[in-house]
Design a protein around this nucleic acid. Structure first.
Lengths: 339, 339
DNA sequence: TTGTAAGCGTTATCAT
DNA sequence: ATGATAACGCTTACAA
């Protein structure tokens, strides 16, 4: 591993000059010839930053805590796979920026206060929170903010503008989906909830608002919530529901994960999916693409969310004084596939 | 954050002494009074090691690359959840030792050579490979070994003793399971394979050996491999299979993941699980415990594997000269639950 | 525009 | 047994 000092010797300049050039902080105070020479030498010798030294000099750690609520595996059990997508994207982005990570799997059986306390001990430059519920995350974030520790939440929506967060506007998604279907002339639109233990209220709210639901009673007839979330049970209850509610012109799914079961039910009833009955999902693209036929859906926009979040975090780390909380409140993005 | 220098001032000794005491390397060359005083002061002021400084001084990075083959989310799709368990355990253990991690999600569509090349670029103290297939991992590990870079594989079995790895002895598990059932007086033992795309040959081998299978033809009658791996399909084909093969005194599952479907099939046939027909699974405990009734199974021993692996890695990092490859070739561990 | 030098916190090598 | 002191690689304020 070649160092800045060695590069400086080779280039016949001082270490400081090399440091400035390589970190892009020269702001025109290094000659063009020297600059090019230094960059060329660095490239040729495969120079790589020594982050331990950089960290020590800057008083940082170049470590980021990526925090999940509960152990990683628990998210598989409740079918919340978007966590893994978020995690994968986050660590990828951070790695590209030279940051190492610490994955903190926070025990969910603690008070918010204890979590906050525990986090403040961490020797890291910043915190990323993946898919935390608002109620649990509020205190810890406030605590970190008070200590001036940079943090972002990905997959949590805060009512106030005090924190940095990214989330898809859940309610808008369902408003958007139903309105779109109405515009297509499909009046008899239904919702099937396939979330454990059940979808958030905002899903129902959006669905109701999009359809301009006249009454809770009317609304309840438009929603199916299978008793058990197994493909078979979903299939069976979907069949019953569709038969009972005929004609079913469109179905909106609260989540992509069990979509195949719904599609299978329709197929078994000889309903032409996409034309006879439109089906629109919501969630991870990967599960939509696995369906047969592939599921048209609203995307979670995870790439955009995570990229925005990490970028905001780095801003906050590098320019703490000028930083103000920012959020990415994503608007619905529709992905048309087969259904 | 208090530093060693400040502690030294407070204790009225030199920094070197404090460093020795705190790192436990004094080997009796620091007086008892001073030692206790230093430790007490450190505790009182909440001293925490500055890993950037430590790394710089020791010429290390205090970073470990945790490598997966393919993106994290892809393992959810093929139902290989043990990866998340391994990952969770590994990062937890490393964190406790002060190491930060880099999660390298290696693109599976590359040659082994390119992967090896890519890995050697990493500026880390060591490598952990989670659940890699032997064929892909061999070259990279060899390459790292040649460069003297510490590495361990968790969930890969190497025929030679050249590398450090941990794995459950897969074949022995199925020998053990079938023999156990035979000893219980259950002669008609069957295997149901619920792995995508299919279980490894060692499973079949172990199963055959345990039963002392007289011929491949005979063996084939004892194995069910459902066409499609959906709960419904597994349920249906299990029913057919069990009816056709009556009496079925015991069933061994290649993996816990779809166990519930098999149990449901038996339940629907009014077969008394555990007494009438014993069912034994293999894999993640978490899926066994979720079953109803809870699935008796052979455990993967992930905690032990990961702990052993990380420990070996740290040994290798700290004493590279005396280190020789070690492996944990785990023997079957049976977990008796309801079935 | 460029170079010098101090410092970041820790470890390790010497003297004492 | 203990204490100076010199690295480790990089950043940055300041001097030239």
């Amino acid at each position: 591993m070649i160092t800045i000092v060695e590069l400086a010797k080779l280039a016949g300049v001082s270490d400081a000059t090399v440091s400035l050039v390589l970190s892009g902080k020269e702001r025109g105070r290094v000659g063009d010839v020297k600059r090019k020479k230094i960059l060329e030498l660095a490239r040729a010798h495969g120079y790589r930053t020594n982050f331990a030294a950089k960290a020590l000099a800057e008083g940082r750690t170049y470590r980021i805590a990526v925090c999940t609520l509960g152990k990683l595996i628990q998210h598989a059990i409740i079918g919340e796979f978007s966590l893994y997508v978020r995690l994968g994207l986050a660590v990828e982005t951070l790695r590209a920026e030279g940051y190492a990570i610490e994955i903190a799997q926070i025990d969910a059986n603690q008070t918010s206060e204890r979590i906050a306390q525990e986090l403040c001990q961490e020797a890291v430059d910043g915190f990323v929170f993946l898919s935390w519920p608002l109620s649990v995350l509020e205190k810890p974030l406030l605590c970190l903010k008070e200590k001036g520790l940079p943090a972002v939440a990905s997959g949590t929506r805060f009512p106030s503008g005090d924190f940095t967060w990214t989330d898809m506007d859940h309610r808008q998604v369902f408003i958007h989906a139903t309105r779109q279907l109405l515009r297509e002339g499909r009046k008899r639109v239904f919702l099937i909830d396939t979330v454990i233990p059940r979808c958030p209220p905002s899903t129902i709210e959006g669905f109701a608002e999009g359809l301009a639901a006249p009454s809770p009673r009317w609304l309840s007839k438009r929603i199916l919530r299978p008793e058990v979330l197994s493909p078979e049970c979903i299939r069976r209850s979907t069949r019953d529901f569709v038969r009972r509610s005929a004609p079913v012109e469109a179905i909106v799914l609260s989540d992509n994960y069990y979509a195949q079961a719904v599609l299978d039910a329709l197929k078994s009833m000889r309903i032409r999916i996409g034309t006879g009955c439109r089906v629109i999902g919501y969630g991870d693209r990967i599960f939509a693409e696995q369906c047969s036929p592939q599921l048209s859906h609203y995307s979670l926009g995870l790439e955009e969310q995570v990229r925005f979040g990490i970028h905001a975090l780095l801003m906050q780390i590098e320019q703490p004084q000028t930083y103000t909380p920012r959020r990415l409140d994503m608007t619905p993005t529709y992905v048309q596939l087969d259904t």
